[in-house]
Design a protein around this nucleic acid. Structure first.
Lengths: 342, 342
DNA sequence: GCCATTCACGAAAACGGTTTCGTGTTGATA
DNA sequence: TATCAACACGAAACCGTTTTCGTGAATGGC
């Protein structure tokens, strides 16, 4: 058990002042070559490392960034996180992760916990609870204090800050358009309920593609699933009574289940029905047939979010009166596999 | 832009000393009711929150724990992480995550970055690189400094510390035994190369189950895949030339691919061949047929790791001469689904 | 009216660094 | 020999808390 050594320890041992030690270790011109060598040798020998906390306190920079996401056991958020971690680490930042679990309260608690000096800035995706409550005071408090904030994916217009989003509407549009061009005429949409989230934007793209290509919009072809885990029965019933030749699903789980339900009815994918999902994760790659999917490039999104945040943190004058906030769009792309004809 | 308010600010405004403010906010008996009310009201009005960094420096406790994992885009690690985060958060700890990316160097750098005061303890799973190199000096340095460390899943006997592991060998044994009891006689094993990792323990269970049930061990039935992503061709070829009625795979990806390769050859799962995988993730649930799988209960593992760590951090005498370290075993269980007959 | 408590508060050290601003010594210069 | 700059270093403030100890004033008992 060798305790951590401090500047004071070195100073005492070498019979110099703390300031001298500090300067010597920074190779300051002020200190003679002799002293510098002596101090540096001693520091190396005893494996001296400056205490991060003390440094943070002194320069009011922690080199930590706080990430608050609704869920971690979720492919998309996981990839975004990897992007954040990668970029942040390369720039010498550490990442503190909190999971809001889709709850407004947890989101608030987590932010407050971190906002008191623990981090230099936040990256977050709003929890479902927050979007539902439509209450963003905790975000406002943070930005009011001058703490940089970057929102990604699940954002809100209520808060002025940097944002990173996906072109969901266009991606859904492209996906539907692809099926239409492949000759599909009755295309279903499987989405989630809630008026706040990305599903809405994807639905918009779906409707717009139909309209632009003069296909009728039939609300019977739209299945809106509740945000629970045991909604499989509902979707099974849906596919039993519907006659379609294409499906767009807002995530890959729904897509894989759709395939299964279709196959259970003797329909062939993609011959009879084409299926496209969102979230190009492991499921899409390994489904049978493998799934044509809208890739959201989460890792790029994370990198971008981290870049925006760190730029803001390290900006010359962080307390500008009217900063110009950016909204970066990460373009989704369609990865074609077996569940559609190409 | 309202800046953060400090004790000093309050003291100045109310014309009392900093110590008085500090005590008043802690409801100290030393301070008169009048003063306490005045201070508390003022603090509330201006939304005073003590600075975490200053507190950390003072009591040498950061209330942060460092988690170093090889990969985050991986169902098992993700669930473990959720368990850690959940438990830690409930106890008032924040979690700093670093991803080693299976690299020894990154693992070392990350540890050094965090070991200088940023965290109160580590939870980690060894990177493949570290296991390969068999170099644990960075861990030893940390424990030598008295920083608590908990290893999970990928552990080593070289380091004395608390550990959380899975009974991999027994789980594999149980899985193979189940197939044998179902009448399977030629059971294959699909595993990964490397002499260090959990695959070895699972293989042990596989061999032992065969021997205990007097089934011949045939090395032709064992497929060892390289740790690359494009090893699908190899496994396809394997299944084409082999005649089996059961397969144990060391992860769910291999299991799903095995199913597909078998189906491609006209074999039926589970009628002709039973398949069992490890890692009871989303793939197992949504595969077609759904996959019987060894659930590793990652979340429980994470909670246990966090519990062990926090107990160690908060122990009365952290610098015991000879602490008794614990190794907790999280028991895996088999989740039966369609890929085996039950 | 004097002394001993109790009360209510402040001064200061400490945590571990960084940084500004002296200051004593040296050598060169006039 | 007096003056001055350069040199090498130290004292002290500071970051924002906590906590120990000291102290002046009010109060009580006699």
């Amino acid at each position: 058990m060798k305790r951590k050594i401090t500047l004071k320890d070195i100073a005492r041992e070498l019979d110099v002042s703390i300031s001298t030690v500090s300067k010597a270790l920074k190779n300051s011109e002020e200190i003679s070559r002799d002293t510098k060598e002596k101090v540096q040798a001693f520091a190396k020998l005893y494996n001296y490392r400056p205490n991060n906390i003390a440094i943070s306190l002194k320069n009011k920079r922690t080199k930590n960034i706080g990430v608050i996401i609704p869920d971690i056991v979720h492919h998309f958020f996981t990839t975004v996180f990897r992007g954040i971690e990668k970029f942040a680490n390369a720039r010498g930042y550490n990442v503190i992760v909190c999971i809001s679990d889709e709850s407004f309260d947890k989101e608030v608690i987590n932010m407050e916990m971190l906002a008191n000096g623990s981090i230099d800035g936040f990256i977050m995706a709003l929890s479902a609870g927050t979007q539902l409550k439509n209450d963003y005071n905790h975000l406002r408090e943070v930005t009011d204090q001058g703490i940089p904030l970057v929102l990604f994916d699940r954002v809100t217009d209520e808060i002025a800050c940097d944002k990173v989003v996906i072109n969901d509407t266009e991606a859904a549009y492209m996906a539907v358009e692809k099926m239409i061009k492949d000759g599909r005429k009755r295309i279903a949409l499987v989405t989630t309920e809630g008026h706040f989230n990305v599903s809405v934007k994807r639905a918009e793209g779906y409707y717009k593609a139909l309209k632009d290509h003069k296909l009728p919009v039939d609300e019977d072809l739209v299945l809106t699933l509740p945000n629970t885990y045991d909604n499989e029965g509902i979707s099974k019933a849906f596919f039993e009574k519907i006659d379609i030749d294409g499906v767009l699903c807002v995530n890959e789980i729904y897509a894989v289940r759709s395939i299964r339900h279709l196959q259970d009815q003797g329909k062939k994918v993609p011959e009879d029905v084409a299926v496209i999902g969102f979230t190009d994760g492991i499921l899409s790659k390994l489904a049978n047939p493998s799934l044509t999917s809208v890739a959201q490039h989460g890792e790029r999104m994370g990198e971008m979010a981290a870049q925006l945040l760190i730029e803001r943190i390290e900006a010359e004058n962080p307390y500008e009166k009217d900063p110009v906030y950016r909204t970066e769009v990460i373009k989704a792309s369609i990865v074609e596999r077996e569940s559609t004809n190409n």
